[in-house]
Nucleic acid binder design. Structure first.
Length: 473
DNA sequence: TACTGTTTAAGGAGTT
DNA sequence: AACTCCTTAAACAGTA
């Protein structure tokens, strides 16, 4: 089974088999007596070992972390097997989890604007942040700007399966968004709440002969229809939120460094925040003006001291109730989540993601759609909208490397907010390119400073977007 | 016992 | 202002 999950657990076109495989895996779990009590941490430490192969990684490297992230793993997919045999790897998410092992988080491109650089600093509250500038997979401090429904959709679509278990959704989220690995596990409650309440999610009960806990979930085809018909209104992304579980440590770290600003130090959690970063931080705060109210002496009150006055979206206060352990001990995200079958099931979730295929399959009525309910082929318009910005169509130069984002954006024209959000969120989840193309792609990427921010920031140059694309190429 | 799933409630923010 | 969306919290029941 290990080799199955390593090699190609859910090969293309295996959708029809997945339920059987899941069932078989679940039965194997039963046979092996594998309990669900392995913590998600330990689960991740093993399951995540192949995360270096996921698409998240390549895009993160691609965008801002290119110089900082070990790359050999996704250049050497054959290492996967070894990793899964138990040896830990620095490329694994947890190994790369700054909150876990103190991986230094350094600012992004040194030549980028202070704004962009600041985004990559841990624990920065920044309205209007650029999601693609934040390494959500390793940054445990910034809450991903995706709604829970979006996260669920992402997990479901990443799975390429018609149905997915709750624990797999948890797993995918924690695998791909470091924030949730360290966040109060109440987010799982929200996930469940979303699944139950949101009409777009359908529960698929486990069959009698399907061992395991809980049922499966899938996306309602009607909802998919709505997604693609643009029935949903656009909503603004919430501001970045800092993970309260990590913020205190971060604060201590920064404070300790502020006492000796001339010597970059590694704080209690191993976060490098050197004087340059602190300077950038101040730059950012000053540049963002009064709403940030930055004051070197009151920094705690702005971005580092906003907890435990938990701030929801846009910083409004939330009730804390008894969440600080006064009554019910909250479950931690390290609580056991996955059974063996789910770990096997989750394997393909990690970056085995192809939006082309997903959309194609969706449009042809596959994916989670019921038979006879094909999606409307509506994506043939000339215009496209990227997060509220109207953009003229851009022809991808023939024979050049795919501009996946643009292509997908065109195809996603007129999609709903959630779908768009999901698209934006999952665009960087696309599976790694085939090996034979990788070098050429790498060359392209290396020779270009393009990142998603640039691609999605085309609204800045509506006058001549194609010229901007040309400049990117 | 822990996990899963449902339901209710409340509050904030964006949209109409 | 009303509506909708989203998040968070919590209680409760069912289940493995």
């Amino acid at each position: 089974m290990l080799s199955l999950s390593c090699a190609d657990p859910w090969p293309e076109g295996s959708v029809g088999l997945e339920e059987e495989v899941v069932t078989a895996a679940a039965q194997a779990e039963e046979r092996d007596g594998v309990s669900n009590n392995s913590s998600i941490s330990s689960c991740c430490s093993s399951v995540n070992l192949d995360d270096s192969l996921t698409s998240l990684q390549w895009l993160q490297e691609f965008s801002i972390l290119g110089a900082n992230v070990p790359q050999q793993a996704h250049h050497q997919p054959h290492l996967l097997g070894h990793q899964q045999l138990g040896s830990d790897s620095p490329a694994s998410p947890l190994a790369g989890d700054p909150a876990s092992i103190g991986m230094p988080l350094t600012p992004g491109k040194p030549t980028a604007a202070a704004y962009s650089r600041i985004q990559s600093l841990p624990g920065i509250v920044a309205h209007g942040h650029c999601p693609d500038e934040v390494d959500y997979k390793t940054n445990a401090h910034i809450k991903p700007p995706y709604s829970y429904a979006t996260l669920i959709c992402m997990a479901m679509q990443a799975s390429k399966k018609s149905k997915i278990t709750l624990s797999c959704i948890y797993k995918w989220i924690t695998d791909n968004f470091c924030y949730y690995r360290h966040a109060d596990p109440t987010w799982q409650n929200s996930i469940r709440h979303n699944l139950s309440l949101n009409k777009c999610f359908i529960k698929v009960p486990r069959q009698k002969d399907e061992p395991g806990k809980g049922g499966f979930w899938k996306i309602d085809p009607q909802y998919a229809e709505r997604l693609l018909s643009g029935a949903y209104k656009k909503r603004r992304m919430p501001p970045v939120q800092i993970n309260p579980a990590l913020q205190n440590r971060l604060m201590v770290n920064l404070q300790s460094q502020s006492r000796s600003p001339c010597s970059p130090t590694v704080g209690p959690i191993g976060l490098n925040v050197n004087p340059e970063s602190q300077r950038l931080l101040r730059e950012f705060e000053e540049a963002t003006g009064a709403d940030q109210n930055w004051d070197p002496h009151l920094a705690e009150g702005t971005m580092l001291g906003s907890w435990p006055v938990v701030r929801g979206r846009n910083g409004h206060k939330r009730k804390l109730g008894s969440r600080n352990g006064a009554t019910k001990a909250p479950r931690r995200s390290s609580s056991p989540l996955l059974s063996m079958d789910e770990q096997k099931e989750i394997g393909p979730l990690k970056g085995d993601f192809d939006w082309d295929a997903l959309l194609d399959s969706a449009l042809s009525g596959e994916l989670s759609l019921e038979e006879g309910e094909p999606l409307s082929p509506i994506m043939k318009d000339e215009d496209l909208t990227v997060r509220g910005t109207h953009i003229s169509p851009i022809e991808a130069p023939a024979g050049t490397a795919d501009i996946h984002v643009l292509v997908e954006t065109q195809r996603s024209n007129d999609v709903s907010d959630l779908d768009e959000e999901t698209f934006l969120a999952t665009a960087f989840l696309e599976s790694p390119w085939p090996e034979e193309e990788e070098q050429a792609r790498s060359d392209f990427l290396c020779s270009s400073t393009v990142n998603l921010d640039q691609l999605f920031d085309l609204g800045d140059s509506l006058g001549d977007p194609s010229s901007r694309i040309d400049s990117l190429l």
